[in-house]
Design a protein around this nucleic acid. Structure first.
Length: 271
DNA sequence: AACCAGGGTGATG
DNA sequence: CATCACCATGGT
């Protein structure tokens, strides 16, 4: 990973297997918006403007102290070429990789990911993003020096009632959101401990949260904990599994089922 | 106007 | 355990 400073920007060169638009609009995160070539987003208590042209990825107007945070967030130190090479024995995966290998699995905050995917049930991406925007505006902390709001903490969320959440227009999901926030706040759910648990135990700990079923639990493991072996099974992935992989995914994806899932999901949807 | 959207829950066979 | 209505809301 090579980069250098250019004015107030940090520029990365020769990043393989990375597409900013694919990574930010593939449905793993809901907090980025595009304006021209630039994407604006928030993670934790930080905001960023980022763009990609040709082989250059540019973090704009960035304090150097925040650089490691965003390098980690965008998963720039993981070798995706290596992973994709391993997928190559499978014909379908080769096609899917060819089109969608620019998707990286972001390293997002577990609590934000949990809440975001509680919102995702029987829902579509634009509306999930709208709900999260309104939630952050309603009760998120203002991001210093930016016109942006952080994702609310469990404390701030748990202080609200279903009625108070009405402006978010989350529908029946509002009560699940509050139950999840309370579960974390009361210590019934230990989000840091889940990070260290074996996959099945972590999955069980997540599905114990109201509003969290198997699919949402796998999304939180993959997008919030970077557990690349987690395999969220939505309607599209189930379609591929029954059509192309009735015996399950091939052995070459072992350990990276979540990444294969991303490529196959978008490939199958774009048929 | 009816149907869909990267599901979960609770109640039934 | 498989299936099903229902859950709010917005977009088409």
């Amino acid at each position: 990973m090579k980069f250098r400073r250019r004015g107030q920007d940090f520029v990365f060169f020769d990043i393989e297997c990375f597409s900013l638009p694919l990574t930010l609009s593939c449905g793993q995160t809901f907090r980025w918006s595009r304006s021209g070539e630039r994407w604006y987003g928030v993670a934790k208590n930080r905001a960023l403007s980022v763009s990609q042209t040709g082989s250059e990825l540019v973090f704009h107007d960035l304090r150097e102290a925040d650089l490691p945070f965003w390098i980690e967030y965008f998963d720039l130190e993981t070798d995706y070429t290596h992973i994709i090479d391993a997928f190559s024995p499978d014909k379908t995966l080769r096609e899917a990789c060819n089109a969608f290998c620019g998707i990286r699995i972001l390293r997002q905050d577990p609590f934000e990911t949990l809440c975001s995917f509680i919102f995702s049930s029987n829902n579509n991406i634009p509306r999930i993003a709208g709900m999260i925007d309104r939630l952050c505006l309603l009760c998120g902390e203002r991001v210093v020096e930016y016109d942006a709001y952080a994702f609310p903490t469990p404390e701030r969320l748990a202080a609200l009632s279903v009625e108070a959440l009405a402006p978010v227009r989350a529908g029946y999901r509002a009560k699940y959101l509050l139950a999840a926030a309370n579960s974390v706040l009361k210590g019934e759910t230990d989000l840091e401990k889940i990070r260290t648990l074996p996959l099945k135990e972590a999955h069980a700990a997540l599905t114990a949260i109201p509003g969290v079923g198997p699919k949402v639990a796998d999304c939180v493991l993959l997008y919030g904990y970077h557990r690349l072996e987690a395999l969220p099974k939505d309607v599209w992935v189930n379609r591929i599994l029954s059509e192309t992989y009735p015996q399950g995914l091939p052995a070459c994806v072992k350990g990276y089922e979540g990444i294969a899932q991303q490529y196959l999901f978008h490939w199958r949807r774009n048929i």
